[in-house]
């Protein structure tokens, strides 16, 4: 059941074709994450949905209505900005109630909705304060509160966690996930952080250069990346890419073969398919990352093992791989299935 639909949407900045004919269908209640490297157009695409950037070509349909050129104020969408964009001259309460007040909602309804949102977000004690008097995390929650009191058709999040420190970011991420579970509201969330993308999304949209590379659930992207870009963008550390010559029994069209670090295992000398010299051992406690330089061409790969390190730097090691987890890519970088 399509709720929000982008049909062949284009965006130009002068001669620069920033968004190149994007098609996307979003279902009601879905949590969609736009992810990609900086400059890939993810924020632009979000702002086009919001109405803050003009759509140069194509159509945008929301809940059965065409809204391609409608003013942002008429679209009934709520946005959480990267900078939070709180109204500095208003208290938390006034910030959260602003949209309802200008809509001319009943004061009793406004009070009730604001009180409820404030309670959900633990903001009740701060309602009379101004944004200046709040911490970063609290401001962030006010920004979310401002969006939820309105019960909009779609929530838009523009990198909402990027101004928080690491600990708070993790915590708020969990809160947003819970919030979405409770409200079941359609949401679009832009981030460059793949952990946020993987943990929050029902479906992830990977963008690069104004083009959608792949749309899918987090696991689909991880297990069956559509091309080399997605394969290397999702997963930390990156998927290893080796030339096809190391492998036998693969498609004749394959040029590169990708293997995730956890699908390599270090084996007895001479037992493995590949061998090389250890360059660096990163012992992280729960896992160990072993950087290996292969013999011959000098290609490098990373092996992940979930046990204490068994090898040292400059050891020569033999490596085996899990045949069922090979990703083969053709000349164009597309996955071969």
């Amino acid at each position: 059941m399509s709720y929000l639909e982008l049909k062949n949407v284009d965006k130009y900045y002068g001669d620069v074709h920033a968004i190149k004919g994007v098609n996307l269908t979003i279902n009601k209640g879905e949590f969609i994450v736009f992810v990609g490297p900086s400059g890939c157009g993810k924020s632009t695409l979000l702002r086009m949905i919001a109405g803050l950037e003009e759509i140069n070509d194509g159509d945008l349909v929301l809940d059965g209505n065409e809204i391609t050129h409608q003013a942002p104020s008429k679209r009934d969408l709520a946005m959480v900005f990267q900078s939070y964009a709180l109204y500095p001259h208003m208290t938390v309460e006034e910030n959260m109630s602003f949209a309802l007040r200008i809509k001319g909602e009943d004061q009793s309804v406004i009070d009730q909705k604001v009180a409820k949102a404030a309670e959900t977000l633990n903001l009740t004690p701060y309602l009379k304060r101004t944004p200046k008097e709040l911490s970063g995390g609290q401001r962030q929650r006010v920004a979310i509160g401002r969006a939820i009191v309105r019960s909009p058709k779609v929530f838009l999040f523009d990198e909402p966690l990027s101004n928080l420190d690491a600990a708070l970011r993790g915590q708020t991420r969990v809160e947003i996930a819970e919030l979405h579970r409770d409200l079941n509201a359609t949401s679009i969330y832009v981030t460059h952080d793949q952990v946020e993308a993987m943990t929050l999304a029902d479906r992830v949209v990977v963008l690069q250069g104004g083009v959608i590379e792949q749309v899918g659930t987090p696991m689909e992207l991880y297990e069956a990346p559509a091309n080399k870009f997605v394969a290397q963008f999702i997963g930390q550390p990156q998927m290893n890419l080796l030339s096809a010559s190391y492998f036998s029994g693969i498609s004749p069209e394959a040029v590169d073969v990708g293997i995730r670090p956890e699908h390599f295992t270090i084996v007895e000398a001479g037992q493995g398919a590949i061998s090389g010299q250890v360059e660096l051992v990163e012992a992280l406690g729960n896992e160990t990352l072993i950087h290996v330089c292969l013999e011959g061409a000098g290609e490098k790969l990373i092996v992940r093992q979930y046990e204490q390190p068994t090898v040292k730097v400059r050891d020569t090691v033999s490596i085996n791989y899990d045949v069922s987890h090979l990703h083969q890519f053709d000349v164009k970088g597309e996955a071969i299935r």
Binding site: S73, D76, F81, A85, I102, R146
Partner: peptide
Amino acid sequence: EILEAARMDGASVWQEFRH
């Protein structure tokens, strides 16, 4: 972004200016 936030909150040009 503050003005954009107001627009997203449904403010008309006049309301955006006034508030």
